[in-house]
Design a protein around this nucleic acid. Structure first.
Lengths: 240, 240
DNA sequence: CGTTGAGTTGACCATCGTCAACAGGAGTGG
DNA sequence: CCACTCCTGTTGACGATGGTCAACTCAACG
């Protein structure tokens, strides 16, 4: 349950300055002027995390907000009997705490090692209130989330297992492209259980469906990833 | 597909002034001062609608935003083969167009007769940019929508038919309470098909599930509504 | 009083979930 | 370096939940 404690021996150099931040251009910070960025820097603190670390826990309101700058984080809620629904996977540039209030609606747990930029909520809200353009940006990001949530509702409510898995692959690919991944192989850092809990399926159904897509030569399974052999057909499957 | 054309013989008197608007206190307008409200009034126009009217159509971007002031509106997206997923039912005080941009992501279609307050988008955005407090309110409403969307993802991804129907009943009741309905009977203005498309089920499953809840004496079906006999047990079912 | 469309019910079936066995890779300790 | 364990993922057999198709009821409306 380590809450973003600094790792003593950190392999890679973390960005102390917002200017060096690899997520700056896709994150909420993208609209800030250099002067504003300096002010912004004052209240933020970059923290590495390891796989499994909990950034935010459901039912435990926290007074920090986060921007993921590296790695991947799963966002989910758990039912009393242990069933879990993952809302999405946060990646570099994604913001945790769009609602500003009510942190603790969901759990944010690291899928991979990575880093997040951490803000005290009070400071962040003060900054928002002083910078309406920044609030507009925050609102745009929330609108984007809302749109993605609607896509996910269509998927969960009306799509077959095969359509869900295809949609997942296509979406993940598109998101990784945005953050600079251009490789032919799609990495799959999350477990089958994660994929199942994201798609409203079971681990077995996900596995069988991936096997079927392999048999049909749409994809090939490689270690920790997928080779997308027929992306067009995957996209057609995912579309609806 | 009449887009909110005024009905010539309108049974009820519609509010021309924001002050008379029954939805004012729950809507986005609730944070406006009397002076701001006057300015706001300038750009808005209340329009009645009849059951079946389309306010916004998917894939047809519109330059108007709406606040529902009376009646009920279903929000949905349709897949190419006709399958439909309803995201929610908009009721008095609810705002259509939170994203400010991208109107046309979904269809908004009247379930009942009612009225909506209509804004030209450009004017609305100008007002937003001039009133940061108003933008904060808009953002709060978007956050609320996001939270509800997450609840709905949990429902669609992880709940049984019986839990879904119970959750629907409990949620509808809570929402109607907020808008002033205090009757013992829960009105159900939408069709079984609407409920099915909201819950990711079929019309037959909804019907059978309601029948089962009746057999178990949790509810009783009355014309155009439900009598909630054991609300506590419904809430327990809905919870998770 | 007939027509229409919504809702209910039944019979049957498909998809996906459950339970269980098994395979293979990573890490551990001898 | 190899055996052992553990964990994740795959596969198979079976079953349950919910979908499909069809018949029927009933209220609304002309």
């Amino acid at each position: 349950m380590s809450i973003l404690e600094p790792v003593t021996s950190c392999a890679h150099r973390q960005a102390d300055r917002c200017n060096d931040c690899s997520a700056r251009l896709t994150s909420v910070c993208s609209v800030l002027t250099p002067a504003e960025l300096l002010e912004f820097e004052e209240m933020s603190r970059s923290r590495p995390f390891r796989s499994g670390d909990i950034l935010v826990s459901e039912n435990e309101p926290t007074d920090y907000l986060f921007t993921v700058t590296e790695g991947m984080v799963r966002l989910y809620r758990t039912l009393t009997d242990g069933r879990r629904q993952i809302f999405g996977f946060a990646m570099p540039g994604d913001f945790l705490g769009l609602s500003l209030l009510n942190m603790g609606d969901f759990t944010a747990e690291a899928v991979t090692a990575g880093a997040a930029c951490k803000f005290p909520r009070a400071d962040f809200i003060a900054f928002v209130d002083a910078n309406p353009r920044f609030l507009r940006r925050l609102h745009e990001m929330a609108s984007g989330e809302l749109r993605m949530a609607q896509d996910q509702m269509v998927l969960l409510g009306r799509k077959s297992a095969e359509q869900r898995v295809a949609a997942f692959i296509v979406l993940l690919r598109r998101r990784l492209r945005r953050t600079g991944d251009t490789s032919k192989i799609l990495p799959l850092p999350m477990s089958r259980q994660d994929i199942a809990d994201y798609l409203g399926l079971t681990i077995e159904t996900v596995s069988r469906t991936i096997t079927k897509l392999c048999r049909d030569k749409l994809i090939a399974v490689v270690p920790h990833g997928l080779d997308l052999l027929k992306l067009e057909r995957l996209e057609a499957l995912a579309a609806d």
